[in-house]
Design a protein around this nucleic acid. Structure first.
Lengths: 142, 142
DNA sequence: ACTCGATGTAACAGTTAAAGTTACAATTCA
DNA sequence: TGAATTGTAACTTTAACTGTTACATCGAGT
């Protein structure tokens, strides 16, 4: 099972917002670059806004990044749109049998292991900032 | 978005198979400990069997682990039931616009970053073996 | 004040994958 | 042979993502 495409879409959005920061970046223009419906873009913009990463102007339109690129890492984006803080990456079966010695203890045996794996993923995301991504983006684009 | 519960179910199954290895461990008895339908168990057993981790006896019934516990790590299990080798954890949007400078380059900018994050998760899983899990399981159960 | 272009969101449909369930042929062994 | 079990197909249910339409609301310029 795969995670959603919201994370890659978000990063694409942020790169485009930065590359085209001197123009008005609307949800339609992002949708055009990304190849999805503008409403999908607006929904994700709303999550990134919630996280304090972007600002969207109503009426006249346009979205832009409002935090310094060095201060936004990929974990911030991931948490805004994919797995929120305190949420678990791995689903755990709901009804282990408390009358079975294994069922009774399975959470205490596994929970921390699943969390550690999740932490490994998240730490790696935390080490990459939007500034890093933009540096590479400008190299590739030019 | 969360991954499926197949991973936690698989680990629960393997712990139970080991704890009850002197008895006949059928899909119904696993289903009873885990709290899911026996067919769900058989489907997962079939994936673990495919991966060479377990053997299931037809007719008379019963499943058991066939590899040394020190030689099965959590990544083996994860790959058997959740994200197969070569598959990507993060979904990537299908149609970035090749006529947009960002859309044209987004894969080369992001792909390796997503893979690195996935690798971090998988490396961490690789460091834990079933033997480790069983050591803790016996501690907790007794 | 009006209008135009854009956002925010609700509502619903389509799609996909997981998980539940039933059913039954095939298998093993007493 | 018969009972228990596996393997698997088929279908249903559920949940989440994604696509789409629609429309109220907003902001800025005329």
């Amino acid at each position: 099972m795969q995670l959603s495409s919201r994370f890659s879409i978000s990063l694409h959005m942020l790169v485009a917002m930065e590359v085209f920061k001197d123009e008005k970046v609307t949800s339609s223009c992002l949708a055009n670059s990304i190849g999805v419906n503008p409403v999908v873009i607006r929904r994700i913009l709303s999550q990134l806004k919630e996280a304090g990463i972007v600002e969207v102007k109503r009426g006249s339109g346009g979205a832009k990044i409002v935090k310094p690129l060095t201060e936004v890492n990929l974990l911030d984006v991931y948490r805004a749109v994919e797995v929120s803080p305190n949420a678990l990456l791995f689903n755990f079966h709901d009804n282990p049998n408390p009358d079975c010695p294994v069922g009774k203890n399975i959470h205490s045996i596994l929970d921390h292991r699943l969390v550690e794996a999740q932490n490994a993923l998240e730490s790696q995301l935390k080490d990459q900032t939007l500034a890093d991504v933009m540096t590479e983006a400008y190299e590739k684009i030019n």
